[in-house]
Nucleic acid binder design. Structure first.
Lengths: 141, 141
DNA sequence: CGATATTGTTATATGCAACAACAATCGCTA
DNA sequence: TAGCGATTGTTGTTGCATATAACAATATCG
């Protein structure tokens, strides 16, 4: 069958991202976490009192879309918010949130290791810098 | 700001795919095409009389999800279906479909060139084989 | 002080993909 | 050749991620 698509890096990028997202999503589901939620746990864990807006900017998630995401994490007693001033609120992990963050990190690191292992050795070192260059080029907001 | 995420290839993969998808999507929108539709046009163009199921298998789109996709392309007079037997139907591009396919291919190739240009030269050649290895490993159905 | 920007929020829409179920049909084999 | 299992196209529904527009409250800076 003629496949005119897999010669395109953009297409392969899409396929690769889809396939890995599905797999990682499955594993995180065992912690009852979605990928976006896991990434929030990681960032908040490393940056206590970060603001919802700042978090959204870092993760490239719109302010509006952070709302239901944080609501769910809050309902699960994983994060807490407390007012910084009358407008902003800082996010911190609860003890439960930190514990789950650690588990999630374990899952993610294991998964990343498998992902990297799929890449032929001679290309391995080039993957991360190449990908980072793609999305970090032209993102000055 | 602490960013524990961009050291993960999987995360960078997601970000890179999102960012490129958004950009390519915008350009294809000028042809009133979504990415999935453009990929269908390309495959059908190279494989006339391909079956909807086979097309779905190749693009990793479920049979069920091909239905609205093809319905839209058919409504736009870009593809036609004709019965192969009582069960299967072959897909072909109309003249209009072929013309649009060519335009879409132009857009895609231009975009891919820009994408590759963002990657530092020393990593460039490694990108495609690395990505293909990621999604083509463990996909024997 | 006052204009401007930022924050958190609501509501709504789109694209993509997953799953379960079903009738019709094909194709192989017993 | 009759029948069973696999395949095809389809419907309906769900979930996730993302996008936009709008708004009130508040902060910041000239």
């Amino acid at each position: 069958m003629q496949d005119p698509l897999s010669r395109f890096p953009g297409y392969s990028l899409r396929r690769a991202a889809n396939s890995t997202a599905a797999q990682l999503g499955q594993r995180l589901a065992e912690l009852d976490l979605r990928q976006s939620e896991a990434s929030v746990l990681l960032i908040v864990g490393d940056n206590p009192h970060i603001t919802a807006s700042a978090l959204g900017r870092q993760l490239d998630i719109q302010r509006a879309n952070m709302v239901p995401l944080l609501k769910r994490l809050e309902a699960a007693k994983l994060v807490e918010r407390h007012a910084i001033d009358g407008k902003s609120q800082g996010l911190v992990l609860t003890a439960k949130g930190m514990a789950l963050r650690d588990k999630a990190l374990g899952v993610i690191e294991a998964f990343e290791a498998e992902l990297v292992a799929r890449v032929p050795a001679q290309h391995r070192a080039h993957l991360l810098p190449a990908l980072n260059a793609i999305w970090q080029t032209g993102e000055e907001s």
